[in-house]
Each structure stands twice: as structure tokens, then as C-alpha cells.
């Protein structure tokens, strides 16, 4: 008789659980990821490359990159402002504010698109005024940017608020009392402390900005070569039964997802290492 360990299951239970976990992950994650690339290469490399070099695919890539390049920095600025106010100061209604910042995650992407159509569309609140001044927001690029801003709104703020709260405000207060200007304090003290958390938020926001489908689909108007982002381009080709073209573009987005996962994991390890270093440093200081 072997001694039964108190903290673990019998071997047959362990192997059953491992098998179930692997089978579930393989079926729902592994097989679909492999299928994206297999379907893209079904017609050989030449067809794959042709699909990617198609002018409409290239203009979709350009638009997708441009939208992310505008939306992500704007939400970074917001995230820093919001986390600074929430983490370093006390004021009434703070928990309500945190809930409201999370709100876009709870809203269906379709509704995220719809609200901007109701604001700026032809029948919308500002529609007549915009038409008079010949400004197009919905079914044009500005609408796509607005919808993307909405769906990626919480990412940076939500990463930074707990991080800044955990760091407290001692270091910044020391910098200010030693005569640092607000800018110096932010640049030399706050930013170095938050840089990994900030990068983590940027990675998540960027992945969502480039991959968003529902919200963008409602406001885009699907004008080829003009208001088609890469995910919308995938949809159009797929609905035209151009599977190879659709999966060629989809494979670019899948690669982006893999790069996102790798970058995210590296930042997570880095953050964990720094936290471990900090806690390792603490005990001797305490005993002094």
C-alpha cells in the first residue's frame, strides 16, 4: 500500500482531469487555430500570397492600422488621467466612476455601433447639422474610430487603476517635496513605475482595436477600399464564397493574436519578476 498524499488526488483522477482539460482546450482552441492556417493555405502558397496582395486587402490593412494608431493613444491618455485621479486622490463617487469606466465591456458591440448611428447618422441627433456642413461621421472613417474608442475604452484604465493604487503615493510625494515639477514627477517617478502595466493595457487594447468586428460593422457602411477594416474584409470575402481569400486575411489577424499572446505573456512574467523582487527587498528594510 502506498501512502496517500493529503493534497493530491489518486493517480487515476489526475490523469482523467488532465485528459479532459487537454481534450477541451484542443477541441476549442487548438483545432480552430490550426484550421485558420490550414484553410488559408488550402490553395497553395501562390493563392495565399495573392489573397494578401489584393489591393482591397491592403487598403483594409492600412485602415485597420490607422484606426488602432489613433484609438489606442487616445485611450492611453484617458487611462493615465483616470487612474491618476482615482488611485492618488480621494473623492466622492469614486466607485461609481470605476463602474462607469467598465461599462463599455458590458455593452454588446452591436449597441456600441448603434449609439453612434443614433448620434451622427442621417436620422440621428446631429445628423441634419452634419449633413448641412458636409461632414460624414457614420459610414465613414470617423465613425469607425469612435466605435473602436468605445469598445477599447476600459482596457488601459482598468490595468492601471489597481497598479497605481497598490503603489501608493509616497514616491510621488517625495519627488514633489524635493522640488520636482509635475512633469518631472510624472516622467521620472510615475511612468517608470507603471510602464509594464501600461504596456499590458496597450497590448490588450490594440488587439481589440485591430480585431473589433460587431461595433465597426454597424458604423462602417462596408464601402470597399474605403471603410473596410481587415475583419470586415474577412466577412465580405467569406460571404462571397472566396474562402481562401477570407482565410488569408484571417490568418494575418490570427498571427496578430499570437503575437499579442506572446507579448502579453512576456510582460506578465516581467511584472511578476518585479513584484517578486520588491517583496524580496521588503523584509530586511522592515527589520532595520
Amino acid at each position: 500500500m502506498s501512502v496517500r498524499r493529503a493534497n493530491t488526488e489518486p493517480a487515476w483522477v489526475r490523469y482523467t482531469l488532465l485528459t479532459l482539460a487537454f481534450a477541451f482546450l484542443a477541441l476549442f482552441l487548438g483545432v480552430p487555430l490550426a484550421a485558420v492556417f490550414a484553410e488559408a493555405l488550402r490553395g497553395g502558397w501562390e493563392a495565399y500570397v495573392n489573397g494578401l496582395l489584393d489591393p482591397e486587402a491592403r487598403s483594409a490593412v492600412t485602415l485597420t492600422l490607422a484606426v488602432a494608431a489613433i484609438a489606442v493613444p487616445l485611450n492611453v491618455a484617458f487611462g493615465i488621467a483616470a487612474s491618476w485621479a482615482i488611485a492618488k486622490f480621494e473623492f466622492r463617487g469614486k466607485s461609481l466612476l470605476i463602474t462607469l469606466i467598465d461599462l463599455p465591456f458590458a455593452v454588446s458591440p452591436v449597441i456600441a455601433g448603434l449609439i453612434f448611428v443614433l448620434m451622427f447618422g442621417a436620422q440621428g441627433y446631429f445628423g441634419p447639422w452634419l449633413a448641412e456642413h458636409d461632414v460624414k461621421i457614420v459610414f465613414a472613417v470617423p465613425g469607425i474610430i469612435l466605435a473602436t474608442l468605445f469598445v477599447t475604452f476600459p482596457f488601459v484604465a482598468r490595468e492601471m487603476i489597481p497598479l497605481m493604487q497598490a503603489q501608493g503615493k509616497d514616491e510621488e510625494e517625495a519627488a514633489v517635496s524635493l522640488g520636482a515639477s509635475g512633469f518631472q514627477m510624472f516622467w521620472r517617478v510615475t511612468l517608470p513605475n507603471i510602464k509594464w502595466g501600461l504596456l499590458y493595457g496597450v497590448i490588450l487594447a490594440n488587439a481589440r482595436a485591430m480585431g473589433e468586428f460587431g461595433a465597426v460593422s454597424v458604423v462602417s457602411g462596408h464601402i470597399r477600399g474605403e471603410t473596410n477594416t481587415l475583419p470586415l474584409h474577412v466577412e465580405i470575402l467569406y460571404n462571397e464564397y472566396n474562402a481562401i481569400g477570407a482565410f488569408a486575411s484571417a490568418s494575418v489577424l490570427a498571427l496578430l493574436a499570437l503575437v499579442t499572446l506572446v507579448a502579453k505573456t512576456l510582460v506578465e512574467w516581467r511584472m511578476r519578476a518585479e513584484t517578486a523582487m520588491l517583496t524580496a527587498e521588503l523584509p530586511p528594510e522592515k527589520t532595520n
Binding site: P32, L33, E39, M210, G211, P231, F247, L253, A257
Partner: peptide
Amino acid sequence: LPFALPTAVAGIT
């Protein structure tokens, strides 16, 4: 992966 993979890609796949 489901957080990172665009939903349209997941859908067609």
C-alpha cells in the same frame, strides 16, 4: 486565445 483572436476569424473558422 479567445480574448486575442478577432471574433470574425473565430466565426468563419
